[in-house]
Design a binder for these strands. Structure first.
Lengths: 141, 141
DNA sequence: TTGCGTGCAAAGGTTTTGCATGGCA
DNA sequence: TGCCATGCAAAACCTTTGCACGCAA
């Protein structure tokens, strides 16, 4: 609750700067390392994990784990509240892995329904609709 | 497509029997090992992974990966087709972890909308709505 | 007899942990 | 100066792979 970052270190500053620049996109720990390498600054793997994990707890970063052998994906979204979030939803194609952002009233209706009838507060930022996208569906016919 | 299981081995028979008995529930590779141990039969980890992975490809088993350090969850659902599946959806509480099954027309509407307007075939069996459930929402007030 | 299924062990990869050092306030 | 942040290396963990042996057909 009253957790606070104590020191504004160079690593943390750069990490935040990088995250801002890729807001809404999916990145891995290696992407962060590459960014630091390109900037000519060293950073330890553990440091990245420690920061990202803390931000995941705070809700400013989302974590997607697709499978246990490849690296997890992180997405910087900034601060958000479940009760007051934009009606933005994600569809993920199970074939090509494409992540589609969309705003649609049907999804928003579902969210309202779940809350009013089932008392369930759907977190639209963390919810992903899985399926087969347009292109992959076409190709398999 | 024309894949077929060649030998009906003791391990495969027992695995299928176990999966039937826990249909709709989430299990890990360790749960399978424990089952075999209790039955007094040895089974290698690799064998379990190999079978489950094959079933995931065939669509009779679903795989949920929550995080990279803990074991993946599997769920036996039997055969299913994306194009022709029951309108059953899952809500998962991010606090207590409870998984809620539900049939609702709003979700079904969303699925139809995604297909008609976006060409996206939503796989309702693999899609999970994340959020905060009734009870956990009450308690936090 | 044939060849797939199995089990063991090792490898491969990601993430976490421990500890000494460095740097911010 | 005090104490948190960092980085390195090792540990921990899950999952996959290679290979020889066993077993179903």
């Amino acid at each position: 609750m009253s957790e606070k970052t104590h020191y504004r270190t160079r690593q943390m500053t750069m990490l935040l700067s990088y995250l801002e620049s890729v807001r809404g996109h999916h990145i891995t720990v290696n992407d962060v390392k590459d960014y630091f390498k390109n900037q000519g600054v060293a950073i330890g793997t553990a440091t990245i994990y420690r920061h990202l994990e803390k931000m995941v707890e705070q809700g400013t970063v989302l974590k997607y784990v697709v499978d246990n052998t490849s690296s997890a994906c992180f997405e910087y979204v900034g601060s958000h509240e479940i009760a007051d979030q934009p009606s933005c939803f994600h569809c993920k194609c199970e074939k090509c892995g494409r992540l589609i952002h969309l705003h649609c009233t049907e999804a928003e209706n579902l969210r309202l329904h779940l809350f009013e009838k089932h008392g369930f507060k759907m977190d639209s930022i963390r919810t992903v609709f899985y399926g087969i996208c347009d292109e992959c569906g076409e190709n398999s016919r």
